[in-house]
């Protein structure tokens, strides 16, 4: 039994590291260059046009870009790295070994998270450097916003894996992107449903509110830039919310994946 457990952990670790290697060797992290170029372009433009709140704008842009680039990576990598294994049949020799299908999915997921962590760390380093150049200081509020961006990306990556556990990459991409967009609107939709007067719409928007991830919970960019007070309880519950959501989505992915026949 112990030996089985160890083999399972070893397998998950091996798959995670292999996934990260794939992302790196297939040059996924090259988009960091675009991030750097974008940030430099923004700061150059700001130097030309001095309109007062330069610090604010560089922070707005930095956080937004880290978020956006992260979302792109989470969706693209999340979908393609699972699908490719199935499409190119690299998963066949793997699953014929003592590797549970759930271990495969968790390994893939951890590999994608590792990729996201590295990506975010590098972007943040560059971002903080730029902020330091402008402000001459370190703004810890931004760190909290970036942490929450990472939670959001983790949720999106889990959703991407869930969809690609049973669907084609194009469809999975569309589904995941829709979840990302609607996920930012759920509380808004719920308010709308509540005031619409129609019971069906109200129930439907409530359903969306509880089923889709409420991604606005992880959006602390405004708080960070304006140094608005952040309640620690709210922050912790939001993180917990993200973790639970990830676990649920991954378990659904396992359910779908467990009985799948491979061509």
């Amino acid at each position: 039994m112990m030996r089985g457990m160890n083999a399972g952990v070893s397998a998950i670790k091996a798959i995670a590291i292999n996934t990260f290697k794939e992302a790196v060797r297939n040059k996924i992290l090259y988009n960091l260059i675009f991030f750097a170029v974008l940030m430099m372009a923004v700061s150059l433009v700001l130097d030309q046009a001095t309109i007062g709140q330069r610090n604010k704008i560089i922070k707005d842009f930095g956080l937004a870009s880290i978020n956006l680039f992260g979302v792109i990576i989470a969706i693209v990598v999340g979908i393609s790295l699972v699908y490719k294994e199935i499409e190119k049949r690299t998963i066949h020799p793997l699953l014929a070994k003592p590797v549970r299908r759930s271990s495969f999915l968790f390994g893939k997921y951890l590999g994608i998270l590792l990729t996201l962590v590295i990506e975010i760390l590098l972007m943040s380093f560059f971002f903080f450097l730029l902020v330091w150049l402008y402000e001459g200081g370190f703004d810890s509020y931004l760190l909290i916003a970036i942490l929450m961006i990472f939670v959001e990306l983790s949720v999106i990556a889990a959703v991407a894996i869930f969809f690609s556990s049973f669907s084609t990459p194009v469809l999975s991409g569309m589904f995941t992107f829709s979840v990302y967009v609607i996920g930012h609107l759920t509380s808004f939709l719920k308010d709308f449903g509540a005031s619409s007067g129609s019971a069906i719409i109200k129930q439907f928007t409530h359903f969306l509110y509880y089923v889709l991830p409420n991604l606005e919970r992880f959006n602390l960019k405004t708080h960070a830039v304006y140094h608005l007070p952040i309640e620690i309880g709210q922050l912790l519950f939001s993180i917990l919310y993200g973790l639970l959501y990830i676990m649920i989505v991954m378990l659904f992915a396992v359910l779908c994946f467990e009985r799948r026949d491979f061509k």
């Binding site: 292999n18 290697k21 794939e22 060797r25 049949r89 690299t90 066949h92 020799p93 014929a96 070994k97």
Partner: peptide, 12 residues
Amino acid sequence: FLPERPYFYDYL
């Protein structure tokens, strides 16, 4: 197990 027309991670 060796699958038919095997394909492995080509980046390794």
